[in-house]
Amino acid sequence: MSTAVEEVVAEVPATAAEGKVVESLIHVSFNPDGTVALIGERPQGAAAQAWFKYLSHNTLNRYQALAGGRGLFRIPRPEVDALKAAFLKELAA
């Protein structure tokens, strides 16, 4: 059974000591078997499962599980850009 889920990426402002930091919310939805169906901010050409695994292994205390086979990562915008670049570099190697 396939469910159409719209990929949503939200940016939530958060304040920090040195100024304003934009926190990105990367939404994830899972298939009934636990594999990743959709994930936001996925680099072009990357598999959804591989991007989820990379984020899971390279971020600390950033993932929040939600009900209904969903979850999200809360990561500052500059860190998301750095993670994407490192992931693409790893894929190319």
Rank of each mutant, 00 (worst) to 15 (best):
V8D: 15
E7W: 07
K84H: 13
E7T: 09
T35A: 14
R42W: 04
L60N: 12
L60I: 06
E41I: 00
K20L: 11
F73M: 03
A4K: 12
V8E: 15
N58R: 14
Q49L: 03
L83F: 02
I75D: 05
L72Y: 12
G71C: 06
I75T: 03
G19H: 01
H27Y: 12
P13E: 12
E79T: 08
F73G: 00
A48S: 09
A93Y: 08
E7I: 07
S29Y: 03
D81L: 07
L66F: 01
G69P: 02
F73K: 05
N61Y: 15
T59I: 01
A10F: 14
P78E: 10
P76M: 05
P76T: 04
N61L: 09
A14I: 08
A86G: 05
A67F: 04
G69F: 00
H57I: 07
K53I: 05
N58G: 09
D81K: 12
N31K: 06
Q44K: 11
M1P: 11
T59C: 04
Q49I: 00
N61P: 10
R62Q: 14
G69S: 02
V21K: 15
A67L: 05
L91Q: 14
A65V: 04
L91S: 08
M1N: 13
L88A: 07
A48N: 10
L72G: 01
K53P: 02
L25Q: 15
A82N: 07
N61A: 13
A48T: 01
G19W: 03
A65M: 11
L60F: 14
L55A: 07
E79D: 13
R42S: 05
G68N: 14
A86P: 00
I75Q: 06
P43S: 04
A10V: 09
V12N: 09
Q64T: 05
A17N: 10
K84C: 13
E41H: 11
E90K: 15
H57A: 12
F87S: 11
V21G: 08
G34D: 12
V12C: 03
V22E: 10
A50Y: 12
T35M: 09
T15M: 14
